[in-house]
Amino acid sequence: MSFSVTEPSSRTKWFAGTLVILYAIITIMPLLWIVATGFKSPSDAIAYPPKVVFEPTMEGYVNLFTERTRATPEMLEEAGPPETWYDEIVREKGMVISGESRYGQRFLNSVIIGFGSTALCMLLGTAAAYAFSRFRVPLKDDLLFFILSTRMMPPIAVSIPIFLMFRQIGLNDTHLGMILLYTAVNLSLSVWLLKGFIDEIPVEYEEAALIDGYTRMQAFTKVVLPQAATGIASTAIFCLIFAWNEYAFAVLLTSGTAQTAPPFIPTIIGVGGKDWPAVAAGATIFLVPVMVFTILLRKHLLRGITFGAVRK
């Protein structure tokens, strides 16, 4: 085939492909390193020069999920032979498992707060975006600008007032507090993105539904929502990624009950400061939910992330 506007030449394709692969390698290297470190022994993890080939061990993961104490011979005697594979790993180091670590609970907090705030943000964001897109809202432009302006400084700039406020009304270190906070931070983004997506949906679709006998609410759920799915999915991913990775507020506002994984993971390293594999294991597991969520919504994301450049 000769020259074509839409079909790139094979040389262009090769070049683009190589670039993409190079970029992918560069961005994925640190990630692979973390995953690998999770399966190293503590000494391998800090070996110099760094070890690319090593003997994998589950020690990091076991350490991540357990509390251990140094075992005296009497204790070992009392406990009998190791019952499970993780028992065995711990015994080899001359330790016994004394309990479960707090990682699981912190991880669960992250799930509750991350997905909770994302869901709330989508609910409020879709409703607000729909209203801004379809109804005559007094002072619409000013309101939209105000909503956007909440993102004009880094959220952390208001951390002190928020800290004091949360302490005053008892939201410190609660799931609800963190969900509300992350929702507030993400809402402006979600309203703006979703308004763009809803603006793209011709209002005639809803009107056709109204004439076909549906109520306004039904028209919204049956006509607008399916067509805004792409936008909602991509916006949800942005919200989740922010809430999931947020560190500064989490450090400041949570310490126990509602502490999320990001502030917890660095504490795993322990007093001796040598348990890097456990930290890496914690980070690896922490990556999984966002990855799964993104892969599940991948189909929508590809179209949605081009911000409204949805084909008609």
């Binding site: 005639e204 056709a208 109204l210 004439i211 076909d212 549906y214 006509v223 067509q227």
Partner: peptide
């Protein structure tokens, strides 16, 4: 009265077929 209670049919200029 709202449109849904009028029992009429409307053909829009750009047809407004549900794309999904």
């Amino acid at each position: 009265k709202p449109a849904s209670q009028r029992d009429i049919a409307f053909v829009f200029q750009m047809f407004a077929l549900y794309p999904h």
